Simulated assay, not measured.
Amino acid sequence: MRTLFLLNPTAGKADCTRALPRQIDAAAARAGLAMGEYTIRITAHAGHARELANVAARQARQAGEQLRIYTAGGDGTFNEALTGVYGFENAAVGCLPYGSGNDFLRTFGTKAEFLDLDAQLAGGPVAIDLMQTSLGLSATICAAGLDAQVAYGIPKFRRIPLCGGEAAYALSIVEQLCGHIGRRVEYTIDGETLTVDCLMCAVCNGRTYGGGFRAAPEAQPDDGWLDVYIIRKVSRLTIAKLLGMYKNGGHFRNGQLVRAAEPYFIYRRAKQVSLRAVDGRGPIVATADGECVPKEQITVQVQPLAGRILLPKPAFERFAAQRSEQSAT
């Protein structure tokens, strides 16, 4: 068994590489790992985690060994490593949440559980579905529309002096709300075609994105299905009510939309989704695992049980118990 820790010094508000290596050494010693049984690497540029993960997976496969990779960063760092080991059955990826969003873990447990190095090393791998999207591989949610436009606009406000994360986010929201709201979008969902004047949409394998928005509160990341939510175009006065409901996951309960959400939401379960703007206003902005890109067309297809992830012990035990209960019924 090989263990690799990938630390992203630019993720989040503080550089995790200052204190985390010593904490890893201490946790590894408690777990009985010798110095030569694990490696700590610090990423140096965008895409570096993917490169390091891919090399490590190839080397481990050649040696006939299993590989555990823990990424210390945000959802983007985790996604890079997951992409790097895609197709390698000997490798599994876990996350230590040192980024700003950390949405991936919310489907499985709490941030405290995932920060616990002892629990991480005592946990284990599970298989989950992945999404192959126009933006690349994703384990969580691919979204398009207003929320993606807000995320896409944040970097330019961060360049303003003294304009930090929350201020940049707020300014980007104001910019979008002052502009043209909504797009006319054509969806193809497992062969069904819908044309909708919509505010935004989310194609979900996980439950949460955007720093805590519970878009798909009952999504199961290993059931072979995508949960699709489309929010219709509404007035600016209605947006605040809908976003509050959407953030808390109050729009969906017991396998269906709640009555208050029915006039505004469209829900489907699907294997494959594609969408494109048909209003003549150019590409639609999409986001997946922190990546924001304007696209003429966005496609998402589920890849059943194509990913192997590492869960800390409490989350691993809950996940295994839930699967056992489902198998029994």
Rank of each mutant, 00 (worst) to 15 (best):
L199K: 12
I230W: 09
G206Q: 02
C178N: 15
D227S: 07
E192F: 07
V203M: 12
C178A: 14
T208N: 00
H180D: 12
A216D: 02
Y187L: 11
I231C: 10
P221G: 04
G211E: 06
T195D: 08
G206I: 00
I231W: 10
I230K: 09
D197V: 10
G182C: 15
Q220H: 06
D190A: 03
Y209L: 11
D190G: 15
R183T: 14
R214G: 00
A202M: 02
G182K: 07
I231K: 02
G191S: 12
A215P: 12
M200L: 05
E218D: 03
W225N: 04
E186Y: 09
L177Y: 15
T188K: 07
L226W: 03
G224W: 01
E192P: 03
G191F: 01
D227E: 11
N205E: 09
T195K: 09
D222N: 15
W225E: 12
G182T: 13
G224S: 08
M200G: 05
T188D: 06
T193S: 06
A219D: 04
E186K: 13
R184F: 04
C178T: 13
G206M: 01
A202L: 11
V203D: 04
D222Y: 13
P221E: 09
V228T: 07
A202I: 05
P217V: 00
E186P: 07
C204M: 06
D222K: 01
Y187K: 09
A215N: 08
F213S: 11
Y229L: 15
G179H: 06
T193W: 02
P217T: 03
I189D: 03
I230C: 03
T195A: 10
V185L: 12
T188C: 12
I231G: 05
R184Q: 12
H180R: 15
A215T: 03
I189H: 06
V228R: 05
L194R: 05
L177D: 10
V185T: 14
P217R: 07
V185D: 11
A219G: 05
G224Q: 04
G206Y: 01
E218P: 05
V228Y: 10
F213D: 01
A219T: 11
G211N: 09
D227T: 02
G224D: 02
C204Y: 02
L226V: 04
G182E: 06
T208M: 04
L194Y: 05
D190W: 04
